[in-house]
């Protein structure tokens, strides 16, 4: 095929893609309307607080073990939950699509054995975080009950001024 034909084909194909352009994929992170979220851990996790960098490191799976070497299990709400959007925005800095690609990529690179466990409701998360050793998750602050171990971030709790997940 001659070079000029290739250039012509390229231009034609670009025009076709541009014509199909306004098709969009998935959902953008929407954090409006989300209330502050609390970071909760299994009651036997032996930490009393995390820095925001440590929290990011855990949710990005750069840190996969607690200081006692027990494995961390991430619990993440399914898509559409407002608190998930807040986490994607404030911790991951990613859209929903990019978040999925991030975890697929992590597994592809053999950096993690699995992605986060998907949790379909706050009640389910509350149940799981109290029974799965080493688990960590997040819940809207209004859903925090006395059975949950809430972890301060940078020494602050939800509602405190400067708390990073308000």
């Amino acid at each position: 095929m001659k070079g000029v034909d290739i250039v012509r084909s390229t231009v034609l194909a670009l025009v076709m893609i541009a014509a199909a352009g306004p098709m969009v994929s998935s959902v953008d992170a929407q954090t409006e309307g989300a209330e502050a979220v609390a970071i909760v851990v299994h009651p036997e996790v032996t930490i009393d607080g995390l820095s925001f960098d440590q929290l990011k490191s855990i949710f990005l799976a750069e840190q996969q073990h607690w200081p006692d070497r027990s494995r961390i299990t991430l619990l993440v709400r399914a898509a559409i939950a407002p608190e998930r959007d807040l986490i994607l925005s404030e911790i991951y800095g990613m859209t929903e699509d990019r978040y999925r690609q991030y975890w697929i990529s992590k597994m592809f690179r053999s950096e993690v054995a699995s992605g986060p466990k998907i949790v379909f409701s706050t009640d389910m998360l509350r149940d799981l975080v109290t029974v799965i050793p080493g688990s960590i998750g997040f819940v809207p602050v209004s859903e925090v009950g006395p059975d949950l171990k809430v972890i301060p971030i940078d020494g602050m709790l939800p509602g405190d001024e400067g708390y990073p997940l308000n």
């Binding site: 070079g3 290739i6 250039v7 390229t10 194909a13 670009l14 893609i17 994929s25 929903e96």
Partner: peptide, 30 residues
């Protein structure tokens, strides 16, 4: 090139390449 993602798990690409290989010369490809 252009990558176009019509869905979360599918990517379509259109890519132009100019390449020069030792002993073979330069070529255009799509």
């Amino acid at each position: 090139g252009i990558r176009y993602d019509p869905g979360v798990f599918l990517a379509l690409r259109l890519e132009y390449r100019w390449e020069r290989f030792e002993g073979l010369g330069a070529f255009n490809s799509l």
